[in-house]
Design a protein around this nucleic acid. Structure first.
Length: 498
RNA sequence: CGGGGCGUAGCGCAGCUUGGUUAGCGCACUUGUUUUGGGAACAAGGGGUCGUGAGUUCGAAUCCCACCGCCCCGACCA
């Protein structure tokens, strides 16, 4: 048994392994505030890369950024019935606006507010309020807005990046003149998410429509991308909602059409959050820590100079700086290649392991011997233990190919794993068998014909299985629902989930 | 909110049953020497209101009481 950098291993205790990877990679830590995490520089750098790439995609599809308040008047939230019901249980409420001495050396809230504020759990209602003023005419449509923000949902059980009380996300909110247009937008953004997650995070996802009992509160239709983690559980990595006219009606978003008549608009909303980092970790990481696909790695190459004397140090560092420059002069996925020289005075082995645990795609060791041969030693994160000596020139000219290869390799590996744990089931018996194993052994994705009706919850809930989505790829097919025996024109993906 | 567990150095823990020198260990940190191409060794050193409050006692990390906080398991969820 070889020593691993992370204990326990995935196999020994998956949830504990996950926490250890976060701590070993220095991504985040728990804060003094219950359920809220501190995102540390290495973790935040990943989020910044996610933002940068997604933001470019949003702009390219015609969206603009804006910012709306953190606090929502309670009355706004009450406007859409299903929405209230969905979020009421998990709202933090601001009731006072002042602190006064409590007589015991501390402070107590004072100045009770006439109408309490809710800290946004999502912004449909407050954005709708603005939109109702912005939209007057069909000429104002479509209105395509996004905001990068934090939101708060008072969760019972939290886990870093997976589910925290406060989290960072983006929420897109759009208004359209017709339902067709709004539906196209909803699906377009699902595609944007899916392309981003697969191409940049190297996470395979299934695009699908949520069954009726899993919809966003107040939505007519909810679409999601579903990924499989290494413990075979499903993770919802992004959602896009067609809100019909529900929120437009609640917020009074109306416009005059070409004939001068008033019409109620159609809206959408869509979001992804820091949870994607959870997916990233759980998809690629191994028993030696985080594994980052190059496109999302804060540093793609880390150079470790190796020397003994001061003279050697000077020469080796000069060589490293040249190498860094030669790499940085090239572009990978529209960005300058990101290179870091780690010249800290710590033990070489410890330094290596630190970067392995942080998931850097390629480490480069440069020592005095390399100066003579004009060579470097490289080690890939997706192949720990293997080292390869290359010439300086070969590394520089092959850098883009190398990063591309690692990116593709991680995606291919994840696809292969996901596919190996995905299975068609043709009957309730098969379904039960698929999920009947030990509670700790997860079986992956079961795919079956099923009707989109609440009654199928009766079959799946006892097994602690959830209906993830109805894949868009399986649209317009015909079969028999394995639960009800009714005709079904969709398949549904079932899994245990986060 | 129901069931279980835990609060002692930055982190992980021992000590408590049976009260008693200056509260200890591992990792991390600082300094020095030797090392250095895959997790170094030795030596010296810094760092604690033992979760909070009140009690019993000559004496409390240890015993009693109250409170606070955290973690795990369930219902809720991007």
């Amino acid at each position: 048994m070889t020593k691993t950098a992370i204990t326990p291993t995935r196999e020994q205790n998956y949830p504990e392994w996950y926490q250890q990877v976060i701590s070993a990679a220095d991504l985040a830590e728990n804060s003094a505030v219950r359920g809220c995490m501190v995102i540390k520089p290495w973790g935040y750098a990943i989020w910044e890369l996610i933002q940068k790439d997604l933001d470019r995609r949003f702009k390219k599809t015609g969206h603009v950024n804006a910012y709306f308040p953190l606090l929502i008047p309670l009355s706004y939230l009450e406007k859409e019935a299903e929405h209230v019901e969905g979020f009421a249980k998990e709202c933090a409420v601001v009731t006072h606006h002042r602190l006064v001495p409590n007589g015991k050396g501390g402070l107590k809230p004072d100045g009770e507010l006439e109408e309490p504020f809710v800290i946004r759990p999502t912004s449909e209602t407050i954005i709708g309020e603005s939109f109702s003023k912005w939209v007057k005419s069909y000429r104002d449509l479509p209105l395509l807005v996004n905001q990068w923000a934090n939101v708060m949902r008072w969760e019972m059980r939290t886990r870093m990046f997976l589910r925290t009380s406060e989290f960072l996300w983006q929420e897109g909110h759009t208004v359209h003149a017709t339902d067709e247009e709004a539906i196209i937008e909803t699906k377009q953004m699902l595609d944007v998410y899916s392309d981003f997650v697969q191409d940049v995070l190297a996470m395979p996802v299934i695009k699908g429509e949520k069954p009726c009992f899993e919809r966003f509160p107040g939505a007519v239709n909810t679409y999601s991308i579903e990924a499989m983690m290494q413990d075979c559980k499903a993770l919802q990595a992004g959602t896009s909602h067609f809100l019909g006219q529900n929120f437009a009606r609640a917020s009074n978003i109306q416009f005059q059409n070409k004939n001068g008549e008033m019409e109620t608009a159609w809206t959408t909303s869509w979001g992804v959050s820091t949870r994607m980092i959870c997916g990233l970790i759980m998809t690629h990481s191994d028993d030696n820590g985080l594994v980052l696909p190059p496109r999302i790695a804060p540093q793609q190459f880390v150079i470790q100079p190796i020397y003994r004397t001061d003279e050697q140090r000077e020469a080796v560092l000069a060589y490293c700086k040249r190498l860094k420059q030669d790499l940085e002069d090239q572009q990978f996925a529209r960005d300058d290649i990101r290179v870091h020289i780690d010249d800290r005075d710590i033990q070489g082995g410890a330094k290596s392991w630190e970067w392995i645990k942080k998931g850097v795609p390629v480490r480069i060791e440069v020592g005095a011997r390399d100066l003579e041969n004009n060579s470097v030693m490289i080690a890939r994160r997706d192949n720990v233990g293997q080292k390869e000596s290359l010439t300086h020139a070969a590394l520089v000219s092959g850098a883009i190919k190398l990063l591309t290869e690692i990116q593709d390799n991680l995606f291919a590996k994840a696809v292969e794993f996901r596919n190996s744990k995905m299975q068609n089931v043709a009957s309730v018996a098969e379904f039960n068998q698929f999920f009947s194993g030990d509670a700790n052994v997860d079986n992956g994705f079961a795919v079956a014909y099923a009707v989109d009706e609440t009654c199928i919850e009766d079959f799946i809930k006892p097994l602690k299985v959830t209906a993830r989505c109805m894949p868009l790829a399986d649209n317009d097919i015909s079969g028999i629902c394995i639960f009800t025996g009714k005709a079904a024109n969709r398949k549904m993906v079932f899994a245990k989930s986060y």
